[in-house]
Design a binder for these strands. Structure first.
Length: 555
RNA sequence: GCGCCUGUAGCUCAGCUGGAUAGAGCAACGGACUUCUAAUCCGUAGGCCACAGGUUCGAAUCCUGUCAGGCGCGCCA
């Protein structure tokens, strides 16, 4: 539709030049957009305004000349010049009807595009240390990463979702220490807890489990060995729980990648050797430094400490190099906003590998403030007092939680109110959208039950010319907008675009529903309307599915 | 001090690859169920788009500066 209008405008411009009414045969890119107000038509182009400089004419003049030479296609009602020089196109209802057929035919593939052209993209997200349960912040990251993966995949990218398991290094040892000392304490030993130990009930549970499993004689194990056993056991258990929590949250990963495996395979050492060979590192103060400044970082970074241990940065370089070797054209890391200071150094490392800056993208998800009835929920990770993702899913449900996390741009902080998310009311946007799906399911069920004689061929999208009510046209416009919203969402990597789009569509439906009966005594009109609402149902389902939210048939 | 994010209705936020009269939900007030689900709809009210400059036909949107809030600036992960 937009392309047709574009062609019309271009053709008119050419004719105008040929007729000597426009001075220049050059024109910049125009935009075809839906205007904000109904009085401004259905589609609009800024062609006259962007050409003003080239034509050395007032935009309105250009627009008027263009209209003179325009040969409108059949479904155009009228064309007007408005405002500073917009050319507004008013469409006949018939222009919109094919959209319903397109939705019905494409079904679960409606909105699919080839924007990505098969580009291999990896989305890495959550990647929390297996040292404790996932909390709210991880939940937002999980929702964003998972939805983004779905959306990119829908938009024609070849996507792989990955979780990087930080199962190596000091924090795992700290975990082991925490469990070991807790175990000793629970066995009645008088001990002092080290400063940086993890606290929280889950540590107590794990300590008890280790004790039950290993038996009382475990208490006599040499400390170093005991801590290792505790660490291994605890990390495995916690990781299993993380996997389960994410599965319950509707998040599936294609790949779980272990940091430890990079050490076990010698990959980290190889990476460091390679850096040395390329002269990208140097020694200072007994440590080995990566010249990240050469690639835009504000200072050089240590990869091997003076005590001989590698840094987290070192394994991250190895990991990211490994990602590109797997064939990804682009790597997207979803991080909490508190990690933004890490972007430049990793980007530098990626560029040092010979990649382009565009091939590495970090999505920073801003903080979540958890509220209950408008009051902040106090949390302290150190003290082990925090609301876990599991708590949230248990309390408000997967759908409400995901929808809430995806309702706002991740560039903004998010207030997540448990009371609101739990309410089955209009405060809670997830029901607003799901309700559309349920209502339509109800209508379709009733139609099939009441009028089996019609053979229910509304799935074919017949008699669509019956759809002329303004609310019907609005609804179809909302359907027509879905594919481009998917592309916008994918191109900007912003899942909340889909949220906004769904809210718009849901609103258009509720308005329509309140004003018109779908099932009427008029058979052809009923069939047309059934086709329309079926199309709405499909698009709602497609959109919700991108966000990982279910589309219930009854509520 | 430097860096990233944010600043839009009383509240929570969309809109930000520049476009016409800046939108939605909540909260407030007034209406609509004998009906395919009222988890809905309709109406009223609510705005120096933080502030000051600049760029141009045109700025909430882009640039510069100021102010305010959040976060980060380790041979931690």
């Amino acid at each position: 539709m937009k392309q047709t209008i574009k062609n019309m405008v271009t053709a008119a411009a050419k004719k105008a030049v040929a007729a000597g009414r426009l001075p220049s045969g050059q024109w910049p890119d125009m935009e075809i957009e839906a205007p904000k107000h109904e009085s401004q038509g259905d589609l609009s182009t800024n062609f006259a305004m962007v050409s003003a400089a080239v034509q050395k004419m007032a935009p309105r003049q250009i627009a008027l000349v263009l209209i003179d030479h325009m040969e409108p296609v059949g479904w155009i009602e009228k064309i007007e010049v408005a405002g500073p020089g917009f050319i507004n196109f008013f469409l006949k209802p018939a222009a919109w009807h094919p959209v319903v057929n397109q939705v019905l035919e494409a079904d679960e593939r409606y909105g699919v595009s080839d924007l990505g052209k098969g580009e291999q993209v990896q989305v890495e997200f959550v990647s929390a240390n297996p040292t404790g349960p996932l909390h709210v912040g991880h939940g937002r990251g999980a929702a964003v990463g998972d939805a983004l993966g779905n959306i990119l995949s829908f938009a024609g990218f070849s996507v792989s979702k990955e979780y990087y398991i930080n199962d190596s290094g000091r924090q795992i040892r700290t975990l082991g220490t925490s469990v070991w000392f807790r175990l000793l304490a629970q066995a009645g030993r008088e001990i002092e807890f080290p400063e940086d130990c993890y606290k929280g009930d889950y540590i107590k549970d794990l300590a008890q489990e280790v004790l039950d499993r290993e038996g009382p004689e475990f208490l006599n194990t040499p400390e170093d060995i005991a801590i290792k056993i505790c660490a291994r056991y605890a990390a495995d258990r916690i990781l299993a729980q993380i996997r389960k929590d994410l599965a319950d949250f509707g998040v599936k990963f294609d790949q779980w990648f272990s940091e430890q495996s990079l050490y076990d395979s010698g990959r980290v050492q190889q990476t460091i050797d390679a850096l040395q060979k390329k002269g990208q590192v140097y020694e200072k103060d007994g440590a080995l430094w990566f010249k990240t400044v050469d690639f835009g970082d504000e200072k050089d970074r240590v990869v091997v400490r003076s005590n001989g241990l590698t840094t987290y940065f070192a394994s991250d370089i190895a990991y990211h190099q490994e990602k590109y070797e797997r064939g990804f054209d682009r790597v997207i890391d979803v991080w909490g906003a508190d990690h933004h200071g890490y972007i430049d150094r990793l980007a530098a490392a990626v560029m040092a590998m010979g990649m382009n800056r565009e091939q590495f993208q970090v999505i920073l998800v801003q903080l979540v403030t958890l509220l209950r009835g408008g009051k902040p929920v106090q949390m302290s990770t150190r003290a082990g007092e925090f609301v876990t993702l599991k708590d949230i899913v248990d309390e408000v449900g997967k759908d409400a939680a995901r929808f809430m996390f995806l309702s706002r741009s991740y560039d903004s902080g998010l207030d997540f109110d448990l009371e609101v998310a739990k309410q089955k009311s209009s405060d809670n946007p997830v029901y607003y959208v799901q309700y559309v799906h349920a209502r339509i399911s109800g209508i379709l069920a009733k139609a099939v039950e009441q009028h089996p004689e019609m053979n229910m061929d509304f799935r074919q999208g017949r008699h669509l010319s019956q759809l002329v009510a303004p609310e019907e046209i609005q609804l179809i416009k909302a359907l027509a907008g879905f594919p481009e919203q998917v592309e916008k969402s994918a191109a900007t990597c912003h899942p909340h675009v889909i949220f906004t789009c769904l809210m718009t569509l849901a609103s258009a439906f509720h308005v329509y529903y309140n004003r018109h009966k779908v099932i009427t005594s008029d058979a052809t009109l009923t069939l047309a309307r059934l086709s329309l609402v079926l199309a709405v149902k499909k698009v709602i389902r497609n959109g919700l599915s991108l966000l990982g939210v279910s589309a219930p048939d009854r509520m």
